[in-house]
């Protein structure tokens, strides 16, 4: 940790020295543009390699696939049906759902209101990202084929034997565990992707969505913990933690040295590292999780995405 911090500080310092030179040039240029006088000093800064090589629209389409999955899940949970044809876009894949699916039979209206809010937020994210890609001269991908019955095998992989088969649409508590499967993954995905974005307006949009996903994640984690305390029954907190362990193991298997998970408890609502900084996942780590855990290079589909993600980021490279 000490070494990591020192490295960070060293890099920051050398970077800053470099930026100080470039900054003066840019400042000079701006002032010339504004009100005359001093010619801009010409400096030739030493280039520092920066990994800005993934096109923003590829990252946005990657995020769009995840938002389709979340929106579809929450819309089925709240209304018993999924995205409209207009929102899924032309060429959308089909969504496999548990037999006889209907809206979750909420234990009270508060839970319905919480779920309605998240469903609307995720739908808004779908629309906002589609618009952002178009505004950035790109083409938003349609909804890929989705499989919302994958919760059952995922639960088995996590060691959850009761209820079996696991179906997040059958009760409020099962829904909370289902939501738990997605929300922290969304946060880590945006935390990992945001620094890769080169356009500052798109970075700001990604940060805005990241915040909303973290609000959601905290909400779901708080509701699970508070519900367990109220009923003196840790069953569903334990189920969530089995999911968390599985996600951590998948991340480790795909090359993350950290488990990238914080077990849920009354004193650990926030999922973060030892510096209280949220975990970041690479696109590969996210793919391994949503594809159901197969490790290695070249995993192209599986899990919640039976035909893979749409777009240029869809096959694991590590």
């Amino acid at each position: 940790m000490e070494k990591k911090l020192n490295d960070l500080i060293d890099k920051a310092l050398s970077r800053r020295k470099f930026l100080a030179g470039a900054g003066t040039a840019a400042a000079g240029a701006m002032i010339v543009g504004c009100n005359s006088s001093t010619p801009a000093p010409t400096t030739t800064p030493t280039p520092t390699p920066t990994p800005l090589d993934i096109p923003d629209n590829d990252i946005l389409n990657f995020a769009l696939n995840l938002e389709y999955l979340e929106a579809e899940f929450y819309l089925y949970a709240t209304t018993g049906s999924g995205l409209s044809t207009a929102d899924a876009l032309s060429g959308a894949g089909t969504t496999i759902v548990p037999q006889g699916i209907a809206a979750v039979p909420w234990t009270n209206s508060s839970f319905a209101q919480y779920a309605n809010e998240i469903a609307q937020d995720e739908l808004d994210h779908v629309r906002a990202i589609q618009a952002a890609i178009k505004a950035n001269s790109g083409t938003p991908v349609p909804r890929p084929a989705l499989d919302l019955t994958f919760f059952a095998p995922l639960a088995v992989a996590a060691g959850i034997t009761n209820p079996s088969p696991f179906n997040p649409f059958l009760s409020t508590n099962a829904f909370l565990v289902g939501a738990f499967v997605f929300e922290d993954v969304g946060v880590t995905a945006y935390t990992g992707a945001a620094p890769l974005i080169s356009n500052n307006a798109i970075l700001s949009a990604a940060a805005g969505i990241q915040a909303t996903e973290a609000y959601h994640a905290a909400e779901i984690r708080t509701l699970l913990v508070a519900g367990a305390a109220q009923t003196n029954d840790q069953t569903y907190v334990n189920l969530a933690n089995q999911v968390s362990t599985l996600r951590g193991n998948i991340s480790v298997a795909s090359g993350n040295k950290l488990a990238a998970e914080t077990q849920l408890g009354t004193m650990s609502i926030v999922a973060a590292d030892g510096n209280a900084i949220a975990y970041a996942r690479t696109t590969d780590q996210v793919l391994h999780i949503v594809y159901g855990g197969a490790s290695g290079v070249g995993v192209a589909k599986g899990g919640f995405f039976p035909n893979g993600l749409n777009g240029n980021i869809s096959v694991t490279a590590s």
Binding site: L8, Y114, V187, Y190, T191, A194, P195, A207, Q210, A211, T212, E213, A214, Y215, H216, A217, A218, E219, R221, T222, L223, A226, I269, V270, A271, A272, D273, A276, I277, A278, Y279, A280
Partner: peptide
């Protein structure tokens, strides 16, 4: 990356408090 990581944690806190 550190700033966006702290940003997410503040949002977790806010979500926790509001819930």
């Amino acid at each position: 990356p550190a700033a966006v990581g702290i940003h997410a944690v503040e949002a977790y806190h806010a979500g926790l408090i509001r819930t």
